[in-house]
Amino acid sequence: MVVTALKEPAASLATRRTPRVKTGRRDSQTRAAILFLVPASIGFLAFFAWPTLRGLYLSFTDYNLLRDPTFIGLDNYLAIAGDPVFWNSLKVTLEYVVINVGVQTVAALALAVLMQRFTRSMVVRGVIMLPYLIANVIVALVWFWLADYNLGLINATLDTMGLGKIGFFGNEDLAMGTIALVNVWRHLGYTALLLFAGLQAIPRDVYEAAEVDGAGEWRVFRSVTLPLLRPVLAFVLVVTVVGSFQIFDTIAVTTGGGPVDATRAINYYIYQRAFERLDFGYASALAVILMILLAAIALVQNKLLRANESDLER
């Protein structure tokens, strides 16, 4: 079972401690590291690094899968700058992100505080994160059915109450908000659990001190809980903003970008350009822009995060 290559340095290590032995061991470790990294490196190079470079290159080409890509310089980017559908997709994506992340963060924070104050139950935690484990596609379809104009439970209820039906997915002004709220339902428990973990990490004596000082509930939340939670909150915001920018599945199975282009979010537009119009060069350029946008957002939020950490140490 013992491999000779390793036996050698081990044996010499026992007899004489020379620098040569050390380098011998390091070399064996380097060799082992290379072997251990072979499969992961194949995956990394073939499916992350190479497609990233190829995607960058394709963004400067005209490419429809059938003919070889032809280099056209910055033409795709110039066309995007003047593409009203692109600007609209950016607008509706932002609309989605603001509603989704806004509502979700506030509600999750409330839920996390509720859990911390009123329950230790693992079952409750399991139940509230259940929606997060269900596929986007399933969640989208269940809510699409619940909110269906003709037969869905929500509209049937509104109808019997004499309130009039609402075209949640069919109304241009409501569709993106509806999709944002559907995904709030899916992510609420997950986000609340992340924040709950942050609350757990706040030392108990801080609260006791505030209590001794006679601070009320709201004041404790605002002056103790919130500032101490800010690093976790910032982390959660980075993750949720970057995630919700890439909204796709829900749109794909419900509205398909409509009505008109009220829900044609950036990811969906990239998909349509690439696979419905076979415009891979243009779609790649859109994806490059999305990547730069996300990197910028993460960078800004990361700065926020760092500022908060120093805040905590005070």
Partner: peptide, 24 residues
């Protein structure tokens, strides 16, 4: 350094590598 390079891949949005991966 190699580990850091691997982690950079976390920053690349899924749709970006998806197009070339589909071609591949």
């Amino acid at each position: 350094k190699v580990f850091a390079i691997f982690l950079i891949a976390l920053m690349v949005p899924g749709i970006f590598t998806l197009l070339p991966n589909f071609i591949l």
